[in-house]
């Protein structure tokens, strides 16, 4: 399981935790998040998410 971080605002997506409040279940891989998803904090689209593995 990996952790990704939004470079614009520092928002953390942890695959293990998912994002239950947005309907993304725990253990959802980054690759399985819909392409139209956007960072909940800053609105950057997934397509340009320059996320880093931390």
């Amino acid at each position: 399981m990996k952790v990704w971080q939004c470079v614009v605002c520092g928002f953390i997506y942890d695959e293990k935790v998912g994002l239950p409040e947005e309907g993304i279940k725990p253990d959802t891989a980054w690759a399985d998040i819909p392409e139209n998803w956007a960072c909940p904090d800053c609105g950057v689209a997934k397509a340009d998410f320059e996320m880093v593995e931390v």
Partner: peptide, 9 residues
């Protein structure tokens, strides 16, 4: 609006 979201939009 000195915040990230308004800047992105």
């Amino acid at each position: 609006q000195p915040f990230v979201l308004p800047i992105m939009h």
